[in-house]
Amino acid sequence: MTMTKNRDITRQAATTNDVASPVCGGECKFITRDVNVFYGEKQAIFDVSLDIPDRSVMALIGPSGCGKSTYLRCLNRMNDLIDICRVEGTFLLDGEDIYSGAIDPVLLRARVGMVFQKPNPFPKSIYENVAYGPRIHGLAKNKADLDEIVETSLRKAALWEEVKDRLDAPGTGLSGGQQQRLCIARAIATRPEVILMDEPASALDPIATARIEELIDELKENYCIVIVTHSMQQAARVSDRTAFFHLGRLIEEGPTEQIFTAPREKQTQDYITGRYG
């Protein structure tokens, strides 16, 4: 685990009460302050501070290599898996510091689910894919309970009607779009509070992409969703707020209409008008 003295000091200064959260009133899911991420000697993220409201969609956009995925992976501590990665700064989830000893990364990841760029169903049946999370976390009383969780999750992921007759078929046999919805169902099954999506539609065709976007729109009723996307149209379509990253820095953050219609920064404007990307 990557603990640095530097960050311990920051944490003392930044408790929940000190941190003002202007953007989301009382309903901030994540509050992050002064985030710096290093891969070995190389710094990937510089001093990012960002607040993420609950029950809404936050889109992270920017050219490739800008650090948006790295930032996303800090939110459920997936970067712990990378030996050389070092994270500094404050991450508060409902006011709790997720990098302190008090929060177990195993529980954190159940609360902050993740959907990846490439659909990655386990080489198991569709049923077992969805039941995997509830099983390991012990969320079902009995078989009927588990069946119900699986069904609800698949319904929420808008996949139930397509697979209800072949729950025993391998998850890898589904089409790309179905696989990605299966992965979303798998993430939902542990009843997370936040769902992180790392370019969830980049490997899919336009029709499958549209289904995923509809799904995101439905899910935001109950979840806080953070989505990384390289497609500005997608960000404009699905998100409530948008953050623009460039070269590891957060350039600008605000309501999506404002970012796309009246960006404050010139760099943002250049990016959304297609000068670079």
Partner: peptide, 23 residues
């Protein structure tokens, strides 16, 4: 759903009762 219940009764029974108190 029903055919699943019949197929793996032992495994799920163990999972649900012995190990897993529901949350």
């Amino acid at each position: 759903m029903t055919d699943r219940t019949e197929q793996k009764p032992s495994e799920t029974a163990k999972d649900a009762t012995a190990e897993n108190a529901a949350a």
